[in-house]
Amino acid sequence: MHSWILSTLAVAGAIFGAATMQVRAEGQADPLQSPMWEDMRKQFFGGRSYVFDSRVKVRVPKVVENQAQVPVTVDARGLKGVEKVIVFADLNPVQHTLTLTPLEAAPFISFRLKVEQATPIRAAVLTQDGVWHVGGQFLDAAGGGCSSPAMARNKPDWSLTVGNARGRAWRQADGMSRFRLSIKHPMDTGLTQDNIPAFYIEQVMVRSHSGKVLAKLEMREPVSEDPTITMLVRLPLSDRAVQVDSRDIDGNHFSSKIATSWKESRLRTDEGAE
């Protein structure tokens, strides 16, 4: 859809070299017509070049069932040389939602976020050539997800289960390993009426069990309570588990180890993800 822009950039790049990479895709209107787009662009890309790119796929539901748990999948596997993936929501009180650095992982993440009102949900993908590729969807929602207290706050003993984790991993036929993980945490935004301060998991490191760093994830306030993530990592064949270490903004550390025994492997994967 936007291939003409890419080919223009490629041709320009070939003729003028790296200097042309400073050129922004000027005049390209925001396909989602957000009043916050100019602000978002400055905040996340500064003066660097960007392009709206249909290869950055953002999947959100057509209807929101729970403003505090909106499932989102970002899939930029159509792009090569991805260094970073940023997810943001233009009209949320905190726009930046997460940043994925997929060192030995696919530029793919599925998770849930809180929305305060109807908003574009965007993913910006930085490739090695210094260009941000931007995809997104408009999400219709009644809102209130960021200003409602976490469900955990209804339970007096909620702190006893913080850090408890459940998950599973699957070896895929394409050599990647898929894991799904859910960690108990209130992920307080600090924006609720009861003045509960922000309290959320900020840093997530995904390693092979032998210690190789596969991906880094930075999460922010809008990530939903009990973060539930799905990722695709290049786990060495000799490794039997994915290790996920996280830290919240109060300095609590949580570790999870998700076994990927071959017995549990399901090779029927990804055919459905079009």
């Binding site: 999947r59 959100v60 539901p61 499932p71 989102v72 999948t73 599925s110 849930r112 599973r168 991993a169 699957w170 898929r178 894991f179 799904r180 799905t230 399901r266 029927r268 994967t269 459905g272 993800a273 079009e274």
Partner: peptide, 14 residues
């Protein structure tokens, strides 16, 4: 979908 490890939005496209 759940047994195959699909995330919610992937399961929606089945």
């Amino acid at each position: 979908s759940f047994e195959r490890g699909l995330a919610m939005t992937e399961a929606m496209d089945e």
